[in-house]
Design a protein around this nucleic acid. Structure first.
Lengths: 338, 338
DNA sequence: ACTGGCACTCCTCACGCCGGAGTGCCAACA
DNA sequence: TGTTGGCACTCCGGCGTGAGGAGTGCCAGT
């Protein structure tokens, strides 16, 4: 009972602080929430919460502000995901359905996510590594110039221009193409790379040099992780709403946004599509971002798996943000799968 | 002589204001520049310049600040492009040479441009419309599922998945592929679109429905201007250096950066690779951006033409910025052409 | 045409004051 | 034991005042 009320007080503090952006005092708290007790009682609870490190006061005799630990408890124990309105769901759904290819899906996702959460949104491009080979195409552009095209089940297309050491005939190319396809079709990329490396050895020695360059290029395309490293960003203008101190709060975020490696690390741990990862303040693995939180999750099916999320001030609307991130991830997964 | 000195005073005011960010007074001017006259004389000149609308004072008895008109005169008449150091040239050159494909060139350009100018850099992806068809590939993914891949001379690849109304055989696909290629190879995209529209009519009536969807998709890919509309952005963190008012100065820029259409319009007029376009303050076609300037230019050869530039406060280092923009454009053109 | 001097304007910053919100503590009460 | 009202205390933040300084415009002198 006593514990219960303290948690209720913490919840109220978090909610008020998130919406007002100002330290919240005992009086204001009982006014705005029906806690059924007097301010004096609340003060006692606050003192206890502060003792335990869940809240803090910026200055003596100012209102209380949640600490990172306080937000953590709030997220873990107190927050129920606020379900999105059907209008919002519809918006996500129809907006994503308009996408014409994978890139477009990613770009639309980042927009809708930024719009829903009113934070900075980050979406990682789907990874190739878990997807499978849908088709390998080998085209003669010129006698000693081949075009290699790899199409994956995730809908991504990688291409390479290859210049074999000696000119090759059409028949040879056709044969090679057929063999490459039978060896790799439907396999996972890492698996397929293995297969074609073996495949090279079944060719007569005279053809080896040509086969070798093709295989090398293809293996490179398989393991090409550039698309893993790509991210789309949106909602930068929402940084304005931080309203916080310029230098200590916004600059690091803008700088992080330029460093895609950093963003990937922030999204990094969130690989599972089922779980939401929430990093609050100092839990974020960069000191400069210690006043920001990251809410992320994985999306996609096994064959094209990546992460998306948002970045914002620790003082953010966790229930709403978490719900939005989860919802967008689900719809994106569904869209990609269709 | 008298006119000459007034212009010298204007130049000095612009330079000082750009570097100090503070209104500049007559005393400070004669101290920092060897004008050979007394502050009182300078004051007279200033009064005349203000009369003509080239400078203004924020408050009575404060220093003078250049107006948009003043900056305009400065860039038109007074500014000599400050040549880049050889170290900077080397940096641009080697950095761009490391690029592996067109996308990479664009992304590297935007980085180097942001770094050199310390402003927000914008680079439009090269346009397809002037490039030629290098190869059209048609692949059977499933009996009634085709993949269409278009490779252009600019190195860009567009792909579409097509679902023909009836299943098609491999022989038919091969024939269609051959015909598409002979009809379009080496032609400009707009031209090629024309050809294949005609091509459709040479097929027997029974095949028309299938041919039709393929042709439609290909024409769409030809005329697809999405790549025209794509832009890369960098140096957002440089916004911090504005140091100006948050809301009136930075917010509109951040918002513009989200609206790629706006950015394209800003770059829009700059299509010629030879000329620099400088829009100062109110000359920028958006009211919200009336405290920012845009320096842009075209880049690339005829077959892949686009624009790049930077965006910053009107109070920017025009000589340096213009030189950097021009230099990067040249190096990018050279890199793309190689 | 340029210069030095001078009175005037007006911004900026520092200081000090005061009000108000909030706290902690205590004594009283259920 | 937990809750409540009262009370003295703290300290932030806004505001008016005043001194200082940078800059201007004007005028008379060269």
């Amino acid at each position: 009972m006593l514990e219960d009320r303290r948690l209720a007080v913490l919840r109220a503090i978090v909610e008020d602080y998130v919406s007002t952006r100002e330290p919240v005092g005992s009086k204001a708290l009982v006014d705005r929430h029906s806690l059924g007790v007097s301010p004096a009682t609340v003060r006692n609870d606050m003192a206890a919460l502060e003792e335990d490190g869940f809240i803090a006061q910026p200055h003596t005799s100012a209102g209380r502000v949640p600490t990172d630990k306080g937000y953590r408890l709030f997220v873990d124990k107190l927050a129920s995901l606020r379900p999105l309105s059907t209008a919002e769901k519809r918006a996500i759904s129809t907006f994503l359905e308009g996408a014409v290819d994978v890139d477009d899906v990613v770009q639309r996702s980042v927009r809708i996510l930024a719009q829903l959460t009113r934070q900075v949104a980050i979406v990682q491009y789907p990874s190739l590594t878990r997807s499978t080979v849908r088709h390998v195409e080998l085209v003669t552009l010129a006698p000693s110039r081949l075009l290699l095209v790899l199409i994956t089940s995730s809908g991504r297309v990688e291409q390479r221009v290859i210049e074999p050491p000696v000119p090759v005939g059409d028949a040879f190319v056709a044969d090679l193409r057929a063999r490459l396809n039978t060896a790799t079709l439907g396999r996972r990329l890492a698996d397929a790379a293995q297969r074609i490396s073996e495949l090279a050895e079944t060719f007569p020695l005279t053809d080896r040099p040509v086969v070798s360059v093709v295989v090398t290029a293809l293996v490179e395309a398989f393991s090409d992780e550039r698309s893993d490293e790509r991210v789309a960003i949106g909602g930068t203008a929402n940084l304005m709403r931080f309203g916080d101190d310029f230098d200590s709060s916004i600059r690091p975020v803008l700088e992080a946004l330029e460093e895609h490696v950093v963003l990937l690390k922030l999204l990094g741990e969130a690989t599972s599509p089922s779980a939401l990862t929430v990093r609050i303040g100092h839990e974020v693995p960069y000191d400069e971002l210690s006043t920001t939180s990251v809410v992320a999750t994985g999306y996609g099916m096994e064959e094209s798996l990546a992460a998306l999320g948002v970045m914002g001030p620790t003082r953010m609307d966790y229930p709403g943000t978490m719900a939005a991130v989860r919802a967008v991830a689900r719809y994106v997964s569904r869209t990609l799968n269709a």
